[in-house]
């Protein structure tokens, strides 16, 4: 392979893995490369647009069903929605033993939203970025290779981190609401090493705090990185398969079939772990 081709391939992959960025610089609103210096205040507009769009599709579908929901003979789509809701509700009921109006809708939102975002992975990798490139060239007069479009929001660490952070804030909120601030602090400092000797217990507090904080922080990290890692890797393999010429067709099919499993499983795992973590945060007995 010539050096030029190699460069094209790696830049092609790089192109696929780059988000469309927007930020404000001294020159006004800037895009992509110009944002490399903008630091934190950069927005990934493709992630935002696709994720919020998919979220709205989810809410619109379910809301229109909810408005027409009848306790008589349900329509076909209502049946489907009810199956999903019943599935989520039974999972929540099995795992979360407290009483909360928030947990079940939260789990439903996570499950369907993450599932829809993951599902974007099955759209052939080049379709929408190429389309965006054409639009960019013709409408905005920007060269196609400078137009970025990453259509799977869950391959953006910002997306998965936002979900995990939301869950993490809820965990802390539930801990404090159920156990009180002192209960939460006690939980962080008096376990897992506990003795009846007061002096020894005070000595053990830093160790306990360290261990418990790591355990606490590890939860949102594992949530965010698991989803991101799985989908990023899956997307990467699609891109690599897309770069190998004609042989890609059967390989794409095989990987897509396998990936269907990953898509549903990761959505389910995220939902399930959210319920489990919130259940742990709400239970008093450590």
């Amino acid at each position: 392979m010539a050096a030029g081709e190699e460069l094209t391939l790696s830049s092609h992959i790089q192109h696929h893995l780059t988000n469309a960025k927007v930020c404000t610089t001294e020159a006004g609103v800037s895009f992509n490369k110009a944002c490399s210096e903008a630091g934190f205040w950069t927005w990934h507009i493709d992630t935002l647009a696709w994720s919020i769009g998919l979220g709205l599709i989810f809410l619109w579908l379910f809301r229109s069903t909810a408005k027409k929901a009848t306790s008589g003979v349900p329509g076909k789509f209502q049946c489907f929605v009810e199956i999903v809701i019943d599935f989520v509700a039974s999972n929540v009921k099995d795992t979360y033993h407290g009483k909360s109006k928030l947990i079940a809708p939260l789990a439903l939102t996570i499950f369907i939203w993450v599932f829809l975002m993951n599902l974007m992975d099955l759209v052939p990798v080049d379709f929408l970025p190429a389309f965006a490139g054409v639009v960019g060239e013709t409408v905005f007069n920007v060269p196609a290779e400078k137009v970025y479009m990453k259509i799977v929001p869950t391959t953006d660490i910002n997306m998965t981190a936002a979900l995990a952070l939301g869950v993490f804030l809820l965990m802390i909120g539930y801990s404090i609401r159920i156990k009180g601030v002192s209960g939460f602090i006690k939980e962080l400092t008096l376990h897992p090493f506990s003795t009846n000797n007061t002096v020894l217990q005070i000595i053990l507090i830093p160790f306990n705090l360290l261990l418990e904080l790591i355990a606490l922080i590890a939860k949102p990290f594992s949530l965010a990185l698991r989803l991101f890692g799985n989908l990023y890797a899956g997307e990467m393999i699609f891109i690599l398969i897309g770069a190998i010429g004609l042989l890609q067709l059967p390989l794409h099919f095989v990987w897509a079939v396998f990936h269907i499993l990953v898509i549903v499983l990761q959505a389910f795992v995220f939902m399930m772990l959210t319920i489990v973590y919130l259940s742990m945060a709400s239970s008093d007995n450590h």
Binding site: F40, T42, H44, L48, S51, I52, T109, A161, A162, G166
Partner: peptide, 13 residues
């Protein structure tokens, strides 16, 4: 790297 998208998504969530 993490950026403001995180906040946007958090609010959307």
């Amino acid at each position: 790297n993490l950026n403001a998208t995180l906040l946007g998504e958090l609010i959307a969530f």
